[in-house]
């Protein structure tokens, strides 16, 4: 899969493109979270609009990243999960503890 990391503005945005299940991708995602924190950005937004598949382990890595950001006094939010990815995230109960934004506009409004 492909990651696109942009660290501009008040938050770091990590775009996931493709399928999120391989161990190599988990490491790349963790590195992106580290980079956000390293830049002093306490909010990480994971853009899932172009993610087509996520495994249960991939969900686990999102939760782990969420905990890491929280421990650093920050936040991790999800942006625009679609289709089966959205359904899986909902089944896993992420909406109970994680902010999930349906669009860039919704995100911008929430983050001010």
């Amino acid at each position: 899969m492909e990651f696109k990391l942009s660290l501009t503005g008040s938050f770091g945005k990590i775009e996931m493109i493709g399928q999120f299940w391989e161990h190599g991708d988990f490491a790349a995602f963790e590195k992106a979270i580290e980079d956000c924190l390293g830049q002093g950005l306490t909010i990480a937004v994971v853009d899932l609009s172009r993610l087509t598949f996520v495994s249960s382990q991939g969900l686990g890595r999102l939760v782990r990243a969420y905990s890491k950001m929280r421990e650093a006094g920050g936040e991790l939010a999800l942006l625009s999960p679609l289709g089966s990815v959205r359904e899986t995230i909902e089944i896993a109960g992420f909406a109970d503890f994680m902010n999930i934004y349906n669009s860039e506009a919704e995100l911008a409004e929430a983050l001010g």
Binding site: S56, Q57, G60, D96
Partner: peptide
């Protein structure tokens, strides 16, 4: 268990 990184499969 919500914040555990495993156990969802």
């Amino acid at each position: 268990n919500l914040l555990k990184d495993h156990g969802r499969g």
